[in-house]
């Protein structure tokens, strides 16, 4: 998938196994599965930089880079 420069989400599809965990775990529904099954950031502007996709990717194929305009949110669980 094409990625814009200001997109906070970087997907390294070479390592991605298309398990879909990142898409499901995103609290803001930012990611979607493309036609090829690889995830892409469909709504990058909605990203709150919680990093849940990053820490739940079993293949280290997705990184969320901080965009200076958006405040980083630490996500608390349970």
């Amino acid at each position: 998938m094409k990625q814009k420069n200001d997109d906070p989400i970087h997907i390294f599809s070479r390592w991605c196994k298309r398990c879909g965990i990142c898409i499901a775990i995103c609290p803001k529904n930012v990611l979607e599965s493309g036609k090829d099954g690889y995830p892409y950031a469909a709504r990058p502007r909605d990203c709150i930089l919680c990093g849940l996709c990053d820490i739940h990717c079993p293949d280290y194929a997705i990184t969320v880079k901080k965009n200076p305009d958006i405040k980083e949110v630490e996500h608390e669980e349970t």
């Binding site: 196994k17 990053d54 820490i55 280290y60 990184t63």
Partner: peptide, 28 residues
Amino acid sequence: RTSETMYKYLRPDKTFPHVWCPGCGIGI
């Protein structure tokens, strides 16, 4: 950040993506 940290700790000469099945929790 996991992915960036991983690059620091993974052995670069090993084959990636790793051996575990798609969706396997061991990678997490």
